[in-house]
Amino acid sequence: MSAESTDQGHGHSPAAWTAVTVMLIAFTLGTFAFWFDQAWLVWASAGLLAAGALLGWIMKKAGYGVNGAKSDPKGH
């Protein structure tokens, strides 16, 4: 392995974890809403899914992404 690694951390950051958690909750909620035939809740969970992606992007820009100013990288 070379001394110069281009590894970006594979999303091990507060921004990535928050975005994925919110989107996983939205997807799960949407699946149950679809199963119980609740159209309004399916659409609300789709909105929450988009909000999760937006939240991750905002957190990344605020410095909580991989190698961000406010991120505390952990060793493997």
Rank of each mutant, 00 (worst) to 15 (best):
G11W: 11
S5H: 11
W40F: 05
A33P: 06
G11A: 10
A33N: 13
G56W: 00
V42Q: 07
H76S: 07
D72C: 10
A26P: 01
I25L: 15
H12M: 12
Y64M: 07
A15H: 02
A33L: 11
G9D: 08
S71K: 04
T18D: 01
V20S: 05
A69V: 11
A16C: 12
L49C: 04
F27D: 04
H76K: 07
D72A: 15
D37I: 09
W17L: 14
F32W: 13
D37L: 09
W35P: 03
G9M: 03
L29N: 03
T18R: 04
A51G: 04
H12I: 15
L41G: 03
W35H: 13
H12T: 12
V66D: 12
S13K: 04
A26Y: 02
F36S: 09
D7W: 13
Q8D: 15
Q8S: 13
F27Y: 06
M23W: 05
N67D: 14
P73C: 12
S71C: 10
M1Q: 08
M1H: 06
G68V: 08
S13R: 04
L54F: 06
M23I: 06
T28M: 07
S5V: 13
D7C: 08
Y64G: 01
A62H: 12
M23D: 01
A16S: 12
D72M: 13
A15N: 04
H76M: 09
G68D: 09
W17T: 10
V22K: 05
H76A: 07
V22L: 14
T21Q: 05
S71I: 02
A46H: 02
L54P: 01
Q38E: 14
G52T: 02
D7A: 08
S13Q: 08
